[in-house]
């Protein structure tokens, strides 16, 4: 891209740029290019006089092209767009390729959220997010943005659930996809959402099938345990299921350390301390020895009912 300067641009002749003042011998100083340095000088000057204009939009676009991780420039751009009552669809059209070329950037997502909030419509957003996630299936900012979008526009739909399911089908170990599913079905922690029995049964069946594909995958186990905890149901079914993968009396026939963990919890609840200890011992000595300290701590808790409760 050709360099762009402002000092000989008649459109900017009225602006006296403000040079960066870092004091003497600054630490972590950057030898900026002349182009970046000058553009920032004009932005500081525009910000100092609270200018929100078309030319400021051009200037912020220019600087974002040079440094997309510059939150100040994004925030000032958002305010300029708002003040000018600018065409926000055009802004989204510009943002799409910008986001794709800066996958790890996080200011972009907050900016996008601000724009979509103002536009008041989620149209096209799900597709765009899916494109982003194809590049980076566990991108935290993209998933968080999707959660915001669902919440803001009430997109708790069959379509959203199916899409999430396709992400899980693609990689049953994608914990971000499991979290999104939880968010869709069970909502935000402590918001007291009621989930009907049909849905709960559907979720239990779905997650159990996922566990059978790879029993040592913790993501669906956490989901399954979460369901039992959230809906406060009897753990009898959970126990039956976990026993498919681990039996504390058959230590040569154990297929999942997470099943042992679940069993240890349930036995503790049932006051079957010896069985719980067997599960924890198997974890500490053979099936998850790197966490031996933790499993032994859980054993100690078994004998302190007031703490374990």
């Amino acid at each position: 891209m050709p360099q762009k300067f402002y000092h000989d641009d008649p459109e900017w002749a009225d602006i006296e740029p403000i040079a960066q003042d870092d004091g003497p011998h600054p630490l972590a100083a950057i030898a900026y290019t002349d182009e970046y340095s000058e553009a920032m000088g004009y932005l500081r000057a525009a910000m100092a006089k609270n200018e929100f204009s078309e030319r400021v939009l051009g200037l912020t676009e220019h600087i974002i092209g040079l440094n997309a991780a510059h939150y100040t420039v994004w925030l000032y751009r958002a305010k300029t767009l708002e003040t000018l009552n600018a065409d926000l669809k055009q802004e989204i059209a510009w943002l799409n390729p910008t986001a794709l070329s800066h996958l790890k950037n996080y200011q972009i997502w907050h900016h996008r959220q601000t724009i979509i909030e103002k536009l008041g419509s989620p149209e096209g957003e799900s597709d765009f997010i899916s494109t982003m996630l194809e590049q980076d299936t566990k991108n935290y900012h993209v998933w968080s943005y999707r959660q915001w979008l669902v919440q803001r526009f009430g997109l708790y739909t069959e379509e959203e659930l199916n899409w999430t399911e396709s992400m899980i089908e693609e990689d049953v170990r994608n914990n971000s996809a499991w979290n999104h599913r939880w968010f869709l079905v069970f909502g935000v922690p402590r918001d007291g959402r009621e989930v009907d029995e049909y849905t709960v049964q559907r979720e239990i069946a779905y997650v159990q099938e996922a566990i059978r594909k790879a029993p040592q995958n913790q993501s669906p186990w956490n989901y399954l345990r979460g369901i039992f905890k959230q809906t406060k149901r009897s753990t009898e079914d959970l126990k039956t299921f976990a026993l498919e993968f681990a039996n504390v009396n058959k230590p040569d026939d154990i297929f999942s350390s997470h099943a042992l963990d679940v069993l240890a919890d349930i036995y503790a609840e049932e006051q079957k301390k010896d069985e719980a200890k067997k599960a924890l011992d198997l974890l500490a000595t053979k099936f998850d020895p790197i966490r031996a300290n933790y499993w032994n701590y859980r054993k100690v808790l078994l004998d302190q009912p007031e703490v374990a409760a």
């Binding site: 600054p26 630490l27 972590a28 100083a29 950057i30 030898a31 900026y32 290019t33 970046y36 920032m40 040079l66 440094n67 997309a68 991780a69 510059h70 939150y71 100040t72």
Partner: peptide, 17 residues
């Protein structure tokens, strides 16, 4: 050495100094 100064390609760090 990480206290700088940094060459121009480190501009992306400008907001993280």
């Amino acid at each position: 050495q990480s206290l700088g100064p940094f060459p121009p390609q480190f501009a992306a760090m400008d907001a993280s100094r």
